[in-house]
Structures are given as structure tokens and as C-alpha cells.
Simulated assay, not measured.
Amino acid sequence: MIRRFGHPPKAEIQYTLRPGAYAVLMRGNDMLVTHQSEPEPEFQLPGGGIDPGEAPVGALHREVYEETGYTITKPTRLGTYRRFVFMPEYDMWAEKICSIYLARPAHRIGPPTEPMHEACWMPADIAIPMLANAGDQHFASHCVY
């Protein structure tokens, strides 16, 4: 059974299954997060949806690069959680299955390629409570030493 964070599903809504891969990226006591300015401004763990036929770790590498401009190394799976949300950018209700990894940021190739995203380094104790959802906060808090 996968742990759920956030609101329970609503019986009257049909949810689309949306698997994703997300990374906790640490450098010392600092955490790399992404700030997404739209549709709602929020801080998130870098990552996103796994495309059909794509491997989770491959999606993780792609999404982290798109949202931060960084390559990563040594991804290690921490766990998985789910949440039920409306995704306005896709105009759909989704059951998000979020696989969380701990990885090392390697090289910054350039700025994020994903529109409306900004890579932000900040102390982990400040970043974690600013993350937009409780599942990300839960896994990120287990990576702080």
C-alpha cells in the first residue's frame, strides 16, 4: 500500500493515473529546489511526470535537467507516495504516484529549459517547510543530516 499525503480522493471525480519521479538534491546543508511561478507560485522538489515507455530514473534525469539546468548522479530511491490533485496546466484531476529519489547535483549545464521554473539553492531547514506538498516535505526531511 502506498502512503497518501493530502486530501483523500473525491468519489464523484475520475482521476487519471500520473506517475512521476522527483529528486531531493543536497550540497552540504543546502537543498536545490525549483520555483514554479505558474499556475500557482510554489517551491517543489525538481522532477515531474514519467512519459509512456520512459523509465523512472530516465524521467528523473530529464525532469531535473528541465527544471534546474543540472545533471545528477547516483539516484537512490527513497520511497513513493500518492496524492490526489487537480492539475490546471493539464486541466485534469490526477492520482499522482510520486517516486522520490536522493541524488547528487553534478553539473549545471545552463538555466532551466522548462518555462516558468527557476532553480533555487537554499538551506534545507528553510527549503523543506516551503515545499508545496506534505509528501515532498516528508521525504526531504529524511535527507537532512
Rank of each mutant, 00 (worst) to 15 (best):
I2N: 03
I2H: 10
R3A: 07
P9K: 12
K10A: 13
E12C: 11
R18N: 02
R18C: 04
G20C: 03
G20V: 00
A21W: 04
A23H: 02
G28Y: 09
N29T: 13
N29C: 11
H35E: 13
E38A: 07
P41G: 07
P46T: 04
P46G: 07
I50R: 04
P52E: 01
G53A: 05
E54A: 05
G58Q: 14
G58W: 14
A59N: 15
R62L: 10
R62N: 11
R62C: 10
E63A: 12
V64S: 08
V64D: 08
V64L: 11
V64H: 00
E67D: 01
T68G: 02
G69H: 04
T71Y: 09
T71Q: 05
K74R: 14
T76A: 11
R77K: 08
R77S: 07
L78A: 00
T80Q: 11
V85R: 12
V85F: 09
V85I: 12
F86I: 01
M87E: 08
Y90I: 14
D91I: 09
M92Y: 14
I97D: 14
Y101L: 08
P105E: 03
P105T: 00
H107Q: 15
H107Y: 15
R108F: 14
I109W: 13
G110V: 00
P112L: 06
T113W: 11
T113S: 11
H117L: 01
H117I: 05
C120D: 08
C120S: 10
M122A: 05
A124N: 02
I126N: 07
I128K: 03
M130G: 02
L131N: 03
L131I: 14
L131E: 10
N133H: 12
N133D: 15
G135D: 02
G135R: 00
D136F: 13
Q137C: 08
F139C: 03
F139K: 04
H142K: 15
V144W: 04
Y145S: 13
